[in-house]
């Protein structure tokens, strides 16, 4: 009998995220965790502040993760992780990868001081921000990661968010840490590859992962991967790496940059926008993209 062919896997088949978790349908944050843990493996410790993942993991005494988790205070993902790393080393464990795993609110807003402190010290931790662009766990309130134009429960349609998303990656680059990467859950192998690369680097590493939230974006759960791909192809959220705060490298070279229109139309949070407003947003996206390309070119 002919030996059956085997499927060639682009990711390891080990699963450290259990299926019995409390995520919403179409949750990007859950896929982000799944791909990152495939790269980091079981010798990993997670520090999770208040965020969707403090619920997704499951209530006491349950946990859907096969790695140890320390649920920490909202603004302390980075500082707790710094402490865990020092503590593990002092008890003789120098191998374990220590990860701060936070949402955008815990990173861009309330946790930015502790994150900046850890990055300035270049503490040996991986900081992962899964970015769903608002405080989703508390019911869709705006954060400084919420994009221009979006509805949230604290930016109602009549007063939608009128400031751009904070450029956290540029802020992190200014700390001259060894490794920064943006990633999107539509590009699973890219997430995996970047987490793997981060694992082998010493010092503070920052992964910024785009993670759609159907509940908060008023999008269909089955569109999460589509949105996470479109956001890269229209260059709202380009995928790139920054090494030592200065060397910018594009991960996905977008040849045929798409307009943002179709991306916006799949999400209820942008439904109120007029064509003029969308045009303005498109111009901002184009400017940001050009700025990024200049940084990439000047790195060569």
């Amino acid at each position: 009998m002919k030996k059956p062919r085997t499927m060639k896997l682009s990711l390891p088949d080990e699963e450290l995220v259990g299926s019995g978790n409390l995520a919403c349908q179409g949750c990007g944050a859950t896929l982000a965790m799944r791909y990152v843990l495939k790269a980091l493996g079981q010798r990993t410790v997670l520090c999770i502040p208040a965020c969707c993942w403090s619920v997704i993991d499951g209530p006491f005494p349950h946990s859907c993760l096969d790695v140890p988790v320390y649920h920490c205070a909202f603004e302390t993902a980075a500082s707790t992780a710094s402490g865990v790393k020092a503590g593990l080393e002092m008890v003789g464990d120098t191998e374990t990868t220590v990860v701060a795993w936070a949402g955008d609110g815990g990173t861009f807003d309330i946790g930015i001081q502790a994150l900046s402190g850890a990055a300035e010290r270049n503490d040996d931790i991986i900081y992962v921000c899964y970015d769903n662009e608002a405080y989703m766990n508390t019911g869709i309130q705006r954060s400084s990661a919420t994009p221009f134009g979006a509805w949230t429960t604290t930016t109602p349609v009549k007063h939608f968010k009128n400031r751009p998303k904070k450029d956290i990656d540029a802020i992190m680059a200014a700390h001259r840490i060894p490794y920064i990467a943006t990633a999107s859950i539509a590009y699973a192998e890219d997430v995996y590859k970047k987490a793997k690369k981060a694992k082998d680097i010493q010092g503070t590493r920052f992964l910024h992962i785009y993670a759609p939230c159907p509940t908060g974006w008023k999008s269909r759960p089955e569109d999460s991967i589509r949105l996470a791909r479109m956001v890269v192809q229209n260059s709202i959220f380009p995928l790139y790496e920054i090494e030592n705060g200065e060397k910018y490298t594009l991960s996905i070279k977008v040849k045929d940059k798409k307009p943002i229109h179709d991306y916006l139309k799949l999400q209820g949070r942008f439904r109120h926008l007029t064509e003029d407003q969308i045009k303005f947003m498109q111009e901002e996206v184009d400017k940001n993209w050009a700025r990024l390309l200049r940084k990439v070119e000047s790195s060569d």
Binding site: C72, T76, S79, T80, A81, G83, G87, M90, V91
Partner: peptide, 21 residues
């Protein structure tokens, strides 16, 4: 760990302590 605030000082102590130090 030369932290950037007392809030982070205690958070780091908590992290180190739960790690067993």
């Amino acid at each position: 760990i030369k932290v950037e605030s007392e809030h982070s000082a205690m958070a780091a102590c908590i992290g180190a302590s739960v790690a067993g130090a």
